[in-house]
């Protein structure tokens, strides 16, 4: 399988802050590759290096077979980029934005219309409206249309779903899925752990370092212990009690339950007694499947250099 991106040992500093530390990864042609991590993890810096907007301090990156530093002119014709804030001209109409981006890339909207028709059809009824007057979801679709209008071979999307409501997010991922049939490689970043499963492969990134790269299912399977989900009416009381229990390895609140791991294979009566002693009478403990976020937390916990 040929590679769209091959990155080896990328480092980037801004003054004293290390934004990226030894970033190496490959992206296969035609796949959706996700970078999952919180704000400040280095996603945007990395994406700016991929789009040739920044030069790495060290390391090399080959994109679409070209060196990202030397071949940037040629590369820029084949990359579609959607920065974190949707890069639209708010005082231009939907149609004017699209036409403008088409002209900048030396193409016409008609030439590649079938590529964007699926996406653009959602906003076409409002083509005379100023981009500034669109809702977040519609801005996102317009920005995606603009990024695709020159039929790029590599699509780079920096947090395309941040600040967009849940319905639009779901729609957006469906659109990306459909784009795969046009042989476009997609690199996407997101702070939402639950979006990892939408990607073919993901890299978990934190504090400028990649913690792991794999298929989403493999990452979940990588969770090293049995994971239990605990519930009780007094959630906070349960949390405190579980934390104090000697056999506990990790405790994290997880929505309406608490995810906990133990040093022994299966918690025994001692735990029930311990909880009772702490006034938790209604605790329910079930084994559960680890999610991406559980694995993320596990990997973060291992990183001893991390300071809270």
């Amino acid at each position: 399988m040929s590679k769209s991106i091959e990155s080896t040992g990328i480092w980037k500093n801004f003054g004293d802050t290390q934004a990226l530390k030894d970033i190496s990864f490959d992206v296969n042609e035609g796949e959706i590759f996700g970078f999952i991590g919180p704000d400040g993890a280095g996603k945007t810096t990395l994406f700016r290096i991929i789009t040739t907007l920044l030069l790495p301090d060290r390391g090399s990156m080959t994109i679409l077979g070209l060196d990202s530093t030397k071949g940037f002119k040629k590369l820029r014709e084949n990359i579609g980029y959607m920065p974190g804030r949707f890069s639209l001209y708010l005082d231009l109409t939907v149609e004017e934005n699209l036409n403008f981006y088409a002209s900048v890339f030396g193409t016409r909207v008609e030439d590649n219309y079938e590529l964007i028709s699926d996406i653009y059809s959602h906003i076409e009824p409002f083509k005379k409206r100023l981009a500034g007057k669109l809702s977040g979801g519609m801005k996102q679709k317009l920005a995606l249309s603009c990024a695709l209008i020159h039929r790029p071979r590599l699509l780079v999307l920096d947090e395309p779903t941040t600040g967009v409501d849940a319905v639009s997010r779901t729609e957006f991922w469906e659109m990306l899925r459909k784009l795969r049939q046009h042989d476009i490689t997609i690199v996407v970043s997101t702070p939402y752990m639950d979006e990892a499963i939408r990607c073919d492969r993901v890299a978990l990134i934190q504090s400028g370092q990649i913690m792991t790269i794999d298929k989403p299912q493999n990452i979940r399977d990588g969770f090293s212990r049995k994971l239990f989900s605990a519930k009780a009416a007094d959630k906070y009381g349960l949390l405190i009690a579980l934390r104090e229990y000697p056999g506990t390895l990790s405790v994290y609140p997880f929505g309406d339950s608490i995810h906990v791991t133990f040093s022994e294979e299966k918690p025994d009566k001692a735990l029930t007694e311990f909880l009772l002693k702490n006034g938790i009478t209604d605790a329910v403990l079930n084994e559960t499947e680890a999610g991406i976020e559980d694995r993320f937390l596990e990997l973060m916990g291992k990183d001893e250099t991390r300071k809270l």
């Binding site: 907007l53 820029r76 980029y81 804030r85 949707f86 708010l90 890339f105 990024a147």
Partner: peptide, 13 residues
């Protein structure tokens, strides 16, 4: 400021 420069720079312009 609006981030459009990023896209212009990435374009062949």
């Amino acid at each position: 400021e609006f981030g459009t420069m990023e896209v212009l720079l990435v374009s062949p312009l």
